[in-house]
Design a protein around this nucleic acid. Structure first.
Lengths: 159, 159
DNA sequence: CATTTAGGTTGCGAATCACAACTTAGTCGA
DNA sequence: TCGACTAAGTTGTGATTCGCAACCTAAATG
């Protein structure tokens, strides 16, 4: 991933999904709220007391997450005071990013052995570390990566 | 991951690597600076002009990333004005999280087809989507996950 | 020796955060 | 049916942080 010609580097940096992801999830608390949602918390008061976040900030973040369609806001029919915030498919798509971050924090953070551990519910064995994998499943590191212009690939294939 | 008994839920939320990861990477620009580092940018001015970030903010972030030992700050011997910021192993460990975020942004963001594409340099084929995998390699989704208390597992195994 | 470059620092107004108090609508128990 | 309580916010206020521009210092360059 160090082998960039100049025009490619420009593209790689500007036409990248990262800024877009950060626009939705880059603010303080957003990831903590997402984690709470993954852990099954659905209500404002639940999240507020669990996270210890200020109420106005929580209201603002929930609003933004709903706007980004990461959460879905639905008033409860049985108790009309309550509101349910539920993960959308888009929100569920953030699972790998969240777990990768969490695992990094556990690996390189305080060195806590992390208990309870995240497991496959089928066999209750711990999940693998989240990694980048090649097309054929080989795990890849930074130096195995490269930016490839797909239009060039098509041109090459045509030769 | 919704099947938490109350004490387990407490643990899962408080004894979690996520807050620790966010302490290091949760501020605005941190991930963009990390991406720049992965793309081979090493110098202050390079990053500043590439990212369009304010100089004081960049200085502050680089300082924090060095403090967190995600980047390493080394004065260049050949030109003693220059300073090199290099990824540490700890910093490289953030690759999966960054790629996962980037892929999410590409998938759910503007819908841009993302060109150039991140590829395995060995065969120049696009990498897989970053996912959570079980111990045996099966890809897992949110509902396949569960928190397991390892001390309980040991107790169970002893039976 | 004057100019340019690299990597910052400083000052200041604008935006965001955090804490507490208040509000509004709906529920519950007597 | 009425007072107490709960859920989900909103408002006000001070403390932080952000972003921009200008400035600074040491080193290289011509």
């Amino acid at each position: 991933m160090g082998k960039l010609t100049e025009p490619l580097r420009e593209l790689a940096e500007n036409e990248c999904g990262l800024p877009c992801a950060l626009e939705a999830m880059g603010e303080r608390w957003s990831f903590m709220i997402l984690r709470a949602a993954f852990n099954g918390l659905k209500h404002f008061e639940e999240m507020q007391s669990s996270l210890g976040i200020a109420r106005n900030i929580l209201a603002n973040r929930l609003g933004r997450l709903v706007e980004s369609e990461i959460l879905e806001r639905q008033p409860c029919p049985d108790d009309r005071r309550k509101v349910e915030y539920r993960l959308t498919k888009r929100g569920e798509g953030l699972l790998p990013a969240m777990i990768a971050l969490r695992q990094w924090g556990e690996r390189w953070g305080t060195g806590v052995p992390s208990n309870p551990e995240l497991c496959d519910s089928r066999d209750r064995l711990p999940v693998n570390d989240v990694r980048v994998h090649a097309h054929d499943g080989r795990p890849l590191d930074w130096h195995d990566l490269e930016w490839v212009d797909q239009s060039e690939m098509i041109a090459e294939a045509a030769e």
